[in-house]
């Protein structure tokens, strides 16, 4: 990372930090209470964007995995690893915020409903990708196996969703295509704003994680050269 780039990253970090505080203010002060669900509905402004980022990560995971296997350029593997980790983190957030809301709204922490089940399975799939990387004897093998698993995971999620949807469904769908948006204007603004903030956060984490990974690789290469010179 050059100094110009790190200045840019630093600026983005500051921006995301401020934007996140504004998001928290909007969620707790600006938006009105939802009529039926009450204050607990405010968790949506974090829950839904987190879910969106999770699926964005999975999409990126698939794209970078395919490109890595195609080109064998390590840069794509770094993106693939970063999106697995970030995806897993946001997926965990979704799985934590979801039950908090569900307990208040549905009266249970967990129910085997379509989206919940899909998210849980996705979590397991992403964890599997990381596990295989950890077990692999060397980095190249780990990268290759994780790419194959990443492709499988991304494709599988679509089928899982379809299957679980037929199996069971009770998740609220706030936005249905073709219908007039049912949210109050403040809610809509906050919602869109939170999506934007989460996107920026995702971008920032992605940049930082990829930079750290490439630094790690460089230090490792340097260390190997050093051992080579000494022996």
């Amino acid at each position: 990372m050059t100094s110009g780039q790190s200045k840019g990253t630093l600026a983005l970090t500051g921006l995301v930090l401020i934007a996140m505080f504004v998001a928290i203010w909007m969620v707790f002060q600006y938006v009105p209470n939802e009529r039926v669900m009450g204050p607990v509905q405010r968790i949506f402004y974090f829950h839904v964007p987190a879910a969106m980022i999770t699926f964005l990560s999975v999409f990126l995971l698939m794209a970078s995995s395919i490109t890595y296997l195609w080109t064998r350029n390590k840069r794509w593997d770094r993106i693939s690893l970063a999106s697995t980790e970030i995806g897993l983190m946001f997926c965990t957030l979704v799985l934590i915020t979801g039950p908090i809301w569900a307990k208040a709204a549905w009266g249970v922490w967990w129910t085997w409903e379509a989206r919940l089940t899909t998210t849980l399975i996705l979590w397991l799939l992403l964890a599997g990708c990381l596990m295989v990387r950890g077990y692999a004897q060397n980095q190249d093998l780990g990268a290759r196996l994780a790419s194959v698993l990443g492709i499988i995971a991304a494709l599988d999620v679509v089928i899982v969703y379809k299957a679980v949807h037929w199996w069971r469904g009770q998740h609220p769908i706030v936005f249905k295509s073709g219908e007039k948006n049912p949210l109050a204007p403040e809610m809509y603004t906050t919602f869109m704003y939170c999506i934007g903030v989460f996107m920026a956060l995702f971008l920032l984490m992605m940049i930082l994680r990829v930079a750290v990974l490439s630094l790690e690789e460089r230090t490792q290469a340097l260390a190997e050269r050093r051992t080579g010179e000494l022996s």
């Binding site: 397991l124 799939l125 596990m131 077990y135 004897q137 093998l141 196996l145 089928i159």
Partner: peptide, 20 residues
Amino acid sequence: AKVGRGEALLSTLLFPVTMP
């Protein structure tokens, strides 16, 4: 097999994928 793990890793990978 490639990472030298047997049934335990295979189950953790296989069961979520074959869930549908």
